[in-house]
Amino acid sequence: MKPFPIATALSAIGLFAAHWLAFDFVPMERTMGAVQRIFYFHVPSAWLCYLGFLMCFVGSVGYLWTRRSRWDLFALASAEVGLIFGFIVLITGPLWARPAWGAWWRWEPRLVSMALMVLIFCAYWVLRSYGGSGEGVKRFAAILGVFGAPNIVFVHLAVRKWRGTHPDQVVSRSNSDMRIALYSVLAILLVVFVLLVVQRYRIHKNAFRVRALRRRLSRMGAM
């Protein structure tokens, strides 16, 4: 009947399938061994984090132009879910890098721009959580959402200019089973991502209406 619970159940099954793909379906990678299996969740998470950031950008532009709160809620929900995937990327990445590169971190364009993106998302989240819920804060956050996206491009360019490119084409280097697993997990996580955004959107919408009704109630009480 309701699409949301069905989709939730399906994505739960999908997550199990994703683990089967990452742990059993794909062959053991020759040079990196077991730790390479982090990739099947790490890489799609990174893409989804970028997607969340992009959606936040679009929502922020939409809000600045139309001043409709649905755009603002869309931007906020995408930023929050993007932040969750960003945390996953930033924590699983070093865990992979330590055995594979021998170092937790490298000053490499993709790493730095991802870290900066999560930092900007964090600022966005702190702003929304503690800056209040007025119209002005929404616009403040929208400006941050709009400025953040081109900023990541500049950070990427800066670090590339500074360190040179890293010729690490993971996706094109892997064999077909690995690619199948990667894209399947991506599809599953995309569904999870969309569901989470929808859920966050509904939570914020409810909270928005609760605030409005409280105001109305206090006005009625005053009468």
């Binding site: 061994g33 730790v35 865990l95 992979w96 055995p99 989470l196 859920q199 939570i203």
Partner: peptide, 28 residues
């Protein structure tokens, strides 16, 4: 180390995804 890091990484992923879902469910 490879196996240890693999398990920690997936532990973190589970923690984040399911923790977030659980919190959202309660909040909603």
């Amino acid at each position: 180390m490879r196996y240890r890091h693999l398990w920690i990484a997936y532990g973190v992923i589970w923690l984040f995804v399911f923790g977030f879902v659980w919190r959202n469910w309660k909040l909603e």
